[in-house]
Amino acid sequence: MPTRAAPRSPLPGLGLSLGTTLLFVTLIVLLPLAGLAWQLAQLSLADYLRVMGDRRVLAALRVTITAAAAATLVNGLGGLLLAWVIARYRFAGRQVLDALVDLPFALPTSVAGIALVALYAEDGWIGSLLAPFGMAPAYTWYGIVIAMAFTSLPFAVRAIQPLIEELDPAQEQAARTLGASDTQIFAQVILPNLMPGILTGTGLSFVRSLGEFGALIFIAGNLPFKTEITSLLIMIRLDEFDYPAAAAIAGTLLGLSLILLVAINVLQTRLYRRFERGS
């Protein structure tokens, strides 16, 4: 009996595909990281601790991390709600709303920063309403949170939306038949299935916020010890030709981001395995 030939792959063979992939990753990812690592190697441990122990650096890290955490919390809640509305409801303008979610990806971050200042400065459309109460967000920590939330929102929405679309309505109907309330259905049926997406979306949102630059420098105010962010401080150190110090700060942010991404992948894998065992 003749054997059936294996279907041909539309891509080149393993050797060529793997070689091209490795070349691409090397040029785009590994070489820049190698340059950063080389700059870090110029620092001794004592020099690294001196750079990172500077009061200005610590203040910039505090501002950046706390603002990124707040923006991630906003995107975690708002992204879940927005993804739910887009995936579960049909209404006029739904496709427009769906497209607007990706606008921060397409919009240059500097343009986003200018637009946010026009909205939230004391003479802006929204800021002018809040200014009499001393609450205009521009040039404050709150303005940084708004800019971070704007630029990282698509990560939260797009990580959760596919999981909502894949939910089995029969599970919700079965839970309602058994007498479960809407709150119980959401907490015990829906939310566990969405946790991998929520975890991934909020994690990516946080990492994206840590490295944001263009949108923040316009709305942050850039006051040392108050609204100065780490990405701006890195640029300042580069302008001063203090490359090792800039590398130390950038390497710290990179290390924090890598640790978070690895933790997200591990937790996500465990959650999927738990769901597979439960099913």
Rank of each mutant, 00 (worst) to 15 (best):
R8K: 05
P10H: 12
L11H: 08
G15L: 13
T21M: 11
L31S: 03
A34W: 13
A41L: 09
L43M: 04
A46M: 07
D47A: 14
Y48Q: 11
R56P: 00
V57M: 14
A59K: 10
A59V: 11
T66D: 14
A68R: 11
A68K: 07
G78W: 10
L80Y: 02
L82I: 11
G93N: 06
V96G: 14
L100H: 08
L103C: 04
T109L: 01
S110Y: 05
Y120L: 15
I126C: 08
S128D: 13
S128E: 12
A131W: 03
P132D: 13
A136C: 03
V145Y: 01
I160E: 09
P162E: 15
D168K: 01
A175C: 02
G179S: 02
A180Y: 10
S181E: 00
V189M: 01
P192W: 03
I217C: 02
K226P: 00
T230Q: 01
L232D: 03
L232H: 06
F241C: 06
A250M: 07
G251Q: 05
G251F: 02
L253Y: 06
G255I: 09
I259R: 01
L260I: 12
N265P: 02
V266Q: 14
Q268V: 02
R274C: 05
F275S: 13
G278W: 12
